Simulated assay, not measured.
Amino acid sequence: MSIFLSLRTITPGESSILTFTNPLLVVIFGTIFVGTKYRWIQWLGVLIGFLGVFITLGASLDMQQSGTLLGFLSAVSWSIATLLLKKRGSTFDTWVLTAYQMLSGGLLLLVGSALFEKVEIEITSVSILIILWLAIMASIVQFAIWFFLYRKKTLEK
């Protein structure tokens, strides 16, 4: 939802860059809150990552815009969710977890779009196929595979 709202005041590129700082934040939050130990090369990667964000957005990054804060908060929430999944994910069924994520995210986006967007729907066979592809393959299947592989990797350790 915060990504959706960030797009009201910043560009999609800025929102994307801020949102995808989440792996960098996982390292930081994992160290602070979970006690995960990372190698120096991983910390170097975090430093280089934030340097890249600064180089890319530094001059245009306006902390006064609500979109900047919301884009960064999306990365923070995604990082926290990643750490929670690592800690508690094996106690959930992959399909149930995926269903909850898709349902709650979809409902929030539906409410957000109803409140903030002008609704213009053009129903064609192509638009139906696009929605089905995004809903099934690019959301449900993609996240289910991600959860399955993440759990498999976590259980192997």
Rank of each mutant, 00 (worst) to 15 (best):
S15P: 02
V76D: 00
Q42G: 05
G13W: 01
R151H: 12
F147V: 10
S60F: 03
G13D: 01
W133I: 11
A81M: 13
T154C: 10
L18Q: 00
T11K: 02
S125C: 07
W40T: 09
F72G: 07
I55D: 05
V119K: 12
L134K: 09
R151S: 11
I123P: 07
A144M: 07
I136N: 07
S113W: 01
T21D: 03
I28T: 06
F4P: 00
S104T: 14
L84W: 14
E120A: 11
F143V: 10
A99K: 02
T82E: 08
S77C: 14
I3E: 04
M102N: 12
F54T: 13
G49Q: 04
F54Q: 09
T36H: 07
Q142C: 14
G35N: 08
A75T: 07
S113E: 12
L115G: 02
I80K: 00
L85D: 05
L134G: 04
Y38D: 06
M1H: 12
F147C: 08
W40I: 15
Y150F: 14
I48R: 04
K152A: 11
V111L: 14
G89V: 08
T9A: 00
M1C: 05
F54V: 10
L110Y: 11
L25E: 02
I123L: 15
M63G: 06
S6H: 02
P12E: 01
A99I: 10
K152H: 13
K153W: 09
L47T: 15
D93H: 13
A81L: 09
L149K: 00
A75W: 11
L51M: 10
F20P: 00
S127M: 03
I3F: 12
L70V: 04
T11H: 00
V119R: 12
V26I: 15
S77E: 05
F116L: 15
Y38K: 11
L7W: 01
L24W: 02
S15H: 00
W78Q: 05
L84F: 15
K87P: 01
S127E: 00
K152S: 12
T94M: 06
I10V: 15
L69W: 15
L97W: 02
L47G: 14
Q64T: 15
I17E: 04
Y100G: 12
K37S: 14
I130V: 14
G105V: 01
G105Y: 05
S90D: 14
G45I: 06
G49W: 03
V53E: 08
S90G: 04
F33S: 02
L84K: 06
L7I: 00
K153Q: 14
V119M: 14
I41H: 13
G71F: 07
N22T: 03
A138Y: 07
L51H: 02
R39S: 12
G45Q: 08
R39N: 12
A75I: 07
S90Q: 11
P12Q: 00
G52K: 08
K87L: 06
T36P: 02
I28K: 11
V34R: 07
Y150K: 05
A59C: 02
W78T: 13
G106P: 05
V119Q: 13
L25K: 09
I131T: 13
G58C: 06
I136Y: 10
A81I: 07
D62Q: 11
I32L: 15
V26M: 09
L44Y: 06
G71L: 03
